[in-house]
């Protein structure tokens, strides 16, 4: 598996990317001339007020939306639709209720034409990695919210993507589960050596996980800000430098 890993790149480049929607017949600009490079293996967090376009940006990267102008490139190739090198984790776990945990985790690989035996084998590995080995025969309705989200994470990891796109993945979880899941995400990101793009509205989550934080402005004439987080991992939320970063981010949103 090691040689496969070294071939993975997972670089993202955005060039003058713009996207607007029509709301009641009037165009509403969501992303305007965005330029950004995401390095291979990096964890980039995208934060911003609602309506700042962070989810739209993620959906463009996933290939679920197309940009009006400009380009999104992955490993130098323009994004034209969904792709094998990417996996998406949504705010809801989106599990198929008629499949067991194992069936759900193997689903992505099976859809991609992997032989079911091999798919199950790889699925078991990732189910263990997210700590659900005892629950592989359980059905989604028997799982708690945090467990269901872990299943979604395992399903995404099973296809061994270069880039993991996460759309507020922990947004629906309670505070305690959220903290545990942030630790897990950080560990898995390091172990799997995957590029992660994380959309979140939780500034602390962004600081805990990200190498850089992209702040998307709500006013489209303002330019986005990119803040590098230079802290050793795993990060300590109570440490002075962490707190200073937090204040800096809060100031960006006009809060103190």
């Amino acid at each position: 598996m090691a040689e496969v890993r070294s071939l993975r790149r997972g670089e993202v480049a955005l060039r003058d990317l713009s996207k607007s929607f029509r709301i009641n017949g009037r165009p509403l600009s969501v992303l305007r001339n965005l330029n950004l490079d995401i390095r291979s293996g990096e964890c980039l967090a995208i934060v911003g007020a609602s309506g700042s376009g962070k989810t739209t940006l993620l959906r463009v990267l996933a290939g679920l939306e197309t940009a009006d102008s400009g380009r999104a490139l992955i490993d130098g190739r323009p994004v034209t639709g969904v792709g094998r090198e990417r996996a998406v984790i949504f705010q809801e776990p989106r599990l198929l209720p008629w499949l067991t945990v194992l069936g759900n985790v193997a689903f992505g690989l099976e859809v991609r034409g992997e032989d079911p035996g091999r798919a199950d084998e790889r699925a078991r590995h990732y189910i263990a990695l997210v700590g659900l080995a005892d629950f592989q025969d359980a059905y989604p309705k028997q799982l708690s919210g945090g467990m269901a989200q872990r299943v979604g994470l395992a399903r995404a990891l099973t296809v061994q993507p270069e880039i993991l796109l996460l759309d507020e993945p922990l947004g629906a979880l309670d505070a305690m589960t959220k903290l545990t899941m942030q630790q897990e995400l950080e560990r898995i990101w390091r172990e799997e050596n995957v590029t992660m793009v994380l959309v979140t509205h939780d500034l602390e989550e962004a600081l805990y996980l990200a190498d850089r934080v992209l702040i998307l402005p709500k006013q489209k004439d303002a330019s986005p800000r990119l803040i590098g987080i230079d802290l050793p991992r795993p990060r300590d939320r109570s440490e002075a430098r962490f707190v200073r970063y937090r204040q800096e981010l809060l100031r960006e949103f006009g809060l103190h």
Binding site: A62, G63, L64, V82, G83, R84, R86, A87, V88, F90, E92, R94, L96, F107, G108, V111, R112, V159
Partner: peptide, 19 residues
């Protein structure tokens, strides 16, 4: 949302229907 999830994993129209 489940259909969109399957599409993200590259499922064809037929696979989405069947699965």
């Amino acid at each position: 949302k489940l259909i969109e999830m399957a599409r993200v994993y590259g499922a064809s129209r037929l696979t989405v229907f069947r699965r």
